[in-house]
Amino acid sequence: MFEIHCPYCNEKRSEIEFAYAGEAHYVRPTAQEQTEMSDEDWSRYMFIRDNIRGEHAERWWHNSGCNMFFNAIRDTVTDKFVMTYKMGQPRRTETQIEAARKNNAEQKAKS
């Protein structure tokens, strides 16, 4: 069972307090964009997800805690959370993810 850092509570809590909520950074098109979108593009937004091997940006919901949705980077190979960040913040870059990995390793080494 994971320990997940909620960026709103700013603490690590047990996985039972959370629910997975799908891949992150799929922004709902505005009403205007929706009317202009082809059916194909809309289907892609609706139904197609990356399902990547490696660093996966995903949404989690702290439903038995502060009730907030937030984003996370999780490595689908090791299952490990690399970082979490607040909803609305931009997709994390490779450099940011690498820095978070390094930081995690340092924290671990310290303990």
């Binding site: 909520a21 949404r59 009730n67 949705f69 909803m87």
Partner: peptide, 11 residues
């Protein structure tokens, strides 16, 4: 409730 919270918070 979850569906509403999700849209309210994220979209």
């Amino acid at each position: 409730y979850r569906h509403m919270e999700d849209y309210l918070q994220t979209e």
